[in-house]
C-alpha cells in the first residue's frame, strides 16, 4: 500500500510541476485510526500528504462538481465510475479532469472491524500483506483483511478503474461474484416480511441527509427534500415521510448509482440503504441492460427508451 502512496505522490508532483492541473483531490491520513480523509492539494510540496490504504473509502467524485479549475483526482474504480456518470450528466467535462486511477482491493468496513472489539477503543491500525492489525490499550488484534471488506467491495466486479489518464500500480484480478443473490434472497421473502424489514430500517432514519451529501451523484442544488414549493414529501420522521424519502432517494439514483456505498457509510443510524439501491441497480441491468459508470457512450437508461421495452408489468398492454 505504501508503494502506491509513493507512486501517487510522484504522479501528483509531476502534474503540479508541469502545471497540468491546479488542484489535486486525494486522501491523507485521518485523525482517527481506520480513517483516511479527503484532501485538496495545490502545491507540489504538499504531495507528501497523500496516502493510499484500505480506508480511502469516501467517493472523491463528490468534490468535482461546479469547480472551474483543472483537477486531478485520485480515483479507485467506484470513484471513476461516478466520474463517468458526472461527465455524461455534464457536471464536469472530460477535459477538466485528470483521472489518476488506482486499482482497488476493496476498502475496509470499519464498523465490521470495530464490531470484533466489543466496544474497546482502537488507537492504532496497520495493514500489511492481507492482515489488519488493530491495537489499543492492552490489546492487539489481527484480522484477515478480506473478511472485513465493505459489502459493496465484496460484490464489486469492476475493481480496476474503467476510465483513467494515469494508472497507479498493477491491475487487480476481477472477482466473479454472484452479484445480486442478496436481492433474490430478499425477494423470496413474503410481502409482509419485506415491508417489515424496510420499514424497520427506514424508521431509524433521522433525516440528516448525510447519505445524500456523501453520494457523488446527488448534486442537485435544490434536492427534493429541501423543496417546499411543492413539498414533495414531509420533512418529519413519520414512517410515511421517511419511507417516501427513501424510495424516492433510491429512485432518483436509478441507473446512476455506482454502488460505492458512500451513503451507507455516512449514515449515523446504520440504515440499510443499499437494500433499495441495489434493487434498482439490478432492475436497470435486467430491464434495460445498463450498468452505471461503465461507458461514456451509452445514454442513461431513463434518458432514453426502446419501442419494445418490457411492458409485461402493465395491465393488458
Amino acid at each position: 500500500m505504501s508503494e502506491l502512496s509513493g507512486q501517487i505522490r510522484e504522479a501528483v508532483r509531476k502534474l503540479l510541476r508541469q502545471k497540468e492541473v491546479d488542484l489535486v483531490i486525494g486522501f491523507e491520513a485521518g485523525t482517527l485510526p481506520l480513517h483516511s480523509t479527503p484532501c485538496f492539494i495545490r502545491e507540489q510540496q504538499e504531495a507528501e500528504r497523500l496516502i493510499w490504504n484500505s480506508f480511502c473509502d469516501n467517493n472523491l467524485a463528490k468534490y468535482l462538481g461546479k469547480r472551474q479549475e483543472k483537477i486531478a483526482i485520485i480515483a479507485k474504480s467506484c470513484d471513476a465510475r461516478a466520474i463517468v456518470e458526472l461527465i455524461k450528466e455534464k457536471q464536469i467535462s472530460r477535459e477538466q479532469v485528470v483521472i489518476v486511477g488506482v486499482p482497488c482491493h476493496g476498502m475496509i468496513d470499519r464498523r465490521r472491524a470495530e464490531a470484533e472489539l466489543e466496544g474497546k477503543e482502537i488507537l492504532e491500525a496497520e495493514e500489511n500483506d492481507g492482515e489488519l492489525t488493530l491495537k489499543g490499550n492492552g490489546f492487539t488484534k489481527v484480522l484477515k483483511r478480506s473478511d472485513y471488506l465493505c459489502y459493496g467491495c465484496e460484490v464489486c466486479f469492476h475493481r480496476n478503474p474503467v476510465i483513467y489518464d494515469i494508472l497507479i500500480g498493477d491491475g487487480v484480478a476481477e472477482k466473479a461474484t454472484d452479484q445480486y443473490s442478496d436481492i433474490a434472497e430478499f425477494e423470496a421473502k413474503s410481502t409482509e416480511e419485506r415491508w417489515r424489514y424496510i420499514s424497520d430500517q427506514v424508521s431509524k432514519c433521522i433525516r440528516c441527509y448525510a447519505c445524500r451529501n456523501a453520494c457523488p451523484l446527488c448534486y442537485c442544488r435544490e434536492c427534493f427534500v429541501d423543496n417546499t414549493h411543492p413539498q414533495w414529501t414531509g420533512k418529519t420522521t413519520d414512517i410515511s415521510d421517511t419511507m417516501i424519502f427513501h424510495l424516492m432517494r433510491a429512485f432518483h439514483l436509478a441507473g446512476r448509482c455506482v454502488g460505492c456505498g458512500a451513503c451507507e457509510r455516512a449514515c449515523p443510524m446504520k440504515v440499510d440503504i443499499r437494500k433499495l439501491n441495489r434493487k434498482l441497480v439490478s432492475d436497470v441491468k435486467v430491464l434495460f441492460d445498463y450498468e452505471a459508470g461503465i461507458s461514456l457512450d451509452r445514454t442513461a437508461p431513463l434518458a432514453t427508451f426502446k419501442p419494445d421495452d418490457p411492458e409485461g408489468f402493465m395491465l393488458n398492454p
Binding site: A250, A254, L287, D309, E311
Partner: peptide, 9 residues
Amino acid sequence: RKFALLQSL
C-alpha cells in the same frame, strides 16, 4: 421505463 422501475421498487 420509470413506471416499470417504480412498480417493481
